[in-house]
């Protein structure tokens, strides 16, 4: 299958290794990965803040970039939800509504694509360590991704999954919310990190890099030695 990679802007700039892990995993499965270079940001920041005109401007770039793609796969539940769930709303009544719907239909979150579209759960990965998994809220509640990452982690050799009590609690990122209401956002982050610590895991894994940025921010502040990795990075380890 020819798969177009959707790399959210902050993954592009901060976590390129996550995007490479996705490429590696998909290519090892024998698929052809391309990267439409016109892409930039999905438009979520202005969208979530209420500036839908500006969000549409950014989103049109994505519509153009992925116009010829067969399927689009991205390693962030949040940005994929933006395309899959919110583009159709954003473009309602717009001349590009149909295009937005088409993109929504062919876009998939990475773990859900592996499990539900490709039907694979064992990628032959090896990863020694105790891991706890954080469900990114958009992946979890907008896209209904919950079992998929766990099915994939279950087949990683050497990996022990320790569920945290607050697995489904929001990390507090929420885009511009994190800087508009830093005290609340940080309080949520504290709850999350306390729950991570409680498990005794040495790595926190998520299918959303934006959550990991928030969680890492707190762990670093607390000088914690717990590592944070994107699911793709774990699945690409050998």
């Amino acid at each position: 299958m020819r798969i177009s990679l959707f790399v959210p802007c902050f993954v592009d700039q901060i976590y390129p290794q996550v995007a490479w892990s996705v490429v590696r995993v998909l290519e090892e499965l024998g698929h052809q990965v391309d990267f439409p270079e016109g892409q930039s940001c999905c438009g979520q920041p202005p969208f979530n803040t209420g500036y839908w005109d500006e969000a549409r401007t950014a989103a049109r770039v994505a519509l153009a970039a992925f116009r010829d793609s067969e399927v689009v796969v991205g390693p962030s539940g949040s940005c994929v939800a933006m395309m899959k769930v919110f583009y159709p709303q954003l473009f309602k009544g717009d001349s590009q509504e149909l295009e937005a719907r088409e993109l929504a239909a062919k876009t998939h979150e990475f773990s859900s694509f592996l499990v539900n579209t490709l039907g694979v759960t064992d990628l032959g990965a090896k990863f020694e360590g105790k891991v706890t998994f954080h469900d990114g809220c958009h992946g979890l509640r907008e896209l209904g991704v919950k079992k998929e990452p766990r099915a994939l982690l279950a087949n990683v050799r050497g990996l022990e999954l320790l569920e945290m009590a607050e697995a489904e609690s929001c990390c507090g990122f929420g885009g511009t919310f994190a800087v508009k209401f830093p005290t609340i956002s940080t309080a949520m982050d504290e709850v999350k990190c306390a729950s991570i610590l409680e498990t005794g895991a040495d790595v926190v894994v998520s299918n959303d890099s934006s959550c990991l940025m928030q969680i890492r921010g707190m762990l670093d502040k607390q000088k914690s030695t717990i590592r944070s990795l994107h699911l793709a990075e774990v699945l690409a380890s050998r």
Partner: peptide
Amino acid sequence: ASHTSSDQ
């Protein structure tokens, strides 16, 4: 109809 709950 748009909403999919995780324990749907």
